[in-house]
Design a protein around this nucleic acid. Structure first.
Length: 213
DNA sequence: ATACTGATGGCCT
DNA sequence: GGCCATCAGTATA
């Protein structure tokens, strides 16, 4: 059995222009580790958020209690609670003092699938990590992990991965300001991105399995 | 396939 | 008080 040693992403990876970090995170492996369980997924969809130049960013209006970690050391988890129901996971970017973060929107399940199913209460692989709120629920990520240093953490980190063949950039989702930037990046052709169900993939699945809902 | 809506709570003006 | 970096369900067709 052969094994490829994947190395953890270091500080310098994150200390760069946020849209570049976002694009380079595609294909990397997000790992969530508990004492006895490990879950992981290949990142397939992300969004970049910056600061004063980005009206969609939480950091647009400057530093607050919530956004402080976006201004801090790169490579930390920025976790926030939204819509009264969900958590979203970001990784901070840019050099210390310069705000930036990449929202991890979707991933392809790898290790710990049964644990993710249990936490999500859903069976299909494409329902486990295919959206920012789903992903945090499946991986057990909440405010307790806010500001976690993902460069050194045993609980949450990112491994380098294979660069995807095709990358699509598009406008970001679920916001009103900042619609002009194409800072959403996704792996071309992936069935594991958010909203895939409402596009062509359901049809393809139905054909390949011979089952139509 | 698309549209909409309720849940539910923190953040910011 | 209004607005969300969301999701799951329902309605309509």
């Amino acid at each position: 059995m052969s094994r490829v040693a994947l190395s953890r992403l270091g500080r310098s990876f994150f200390a760069r222009y946020t849209p570049l970090v976002a694009k380079d995170l595609l294909g990397c492996v997000l790992v969530r580790r508990f004492d006895s369980k490990t879950m992981s997924g290949r990142i397939v969809e992300v969004e970049a958020y910056r600061g004063r130049d980005d009206p969609a960013s939480h950091a647009f209006r400057g530093i607050t209690d919530r956004t402080r970690v976006m201004f801090g050391e790169p490579g930390h988890a920025y976790v926030y609670f939204t819509y009264g129901n969900h958590f979203c996971l970001n990784v901070t970017t840019e050099v210390q003092g310069e705000p930036g973060a990449v929202l991890i929107r979707a991933a392809e399940p790898m290790r710990g699938v049964e644990e993710m199913r249990r936490r999500r209460g859903r069976e299909r692989l494409t329902d486990l990590l295919s959206g920012p709120g789903k992903l945090t629920k499946a991986l057990g990520i909440d405010l307790a992990l806010n500001d976690e240093d993902m460069v050194t953490s045993k609980k949450l980190f990112v491994l380098a991965g294979k660069k995807p063949a095709g990358v699509i950039s598009s406008t970001r989702i679920g916001l009103s300001a900042g619609r002009d930037f194409e800072w959403r990046y996704s792996v071309e052709g992936s069935r594991f991105v958010s909203g895939a169900r409402t596009h062509n993939y359901r049809v393809r699945d139905a054909v390949s399995t011979g089952v139509v809902g």
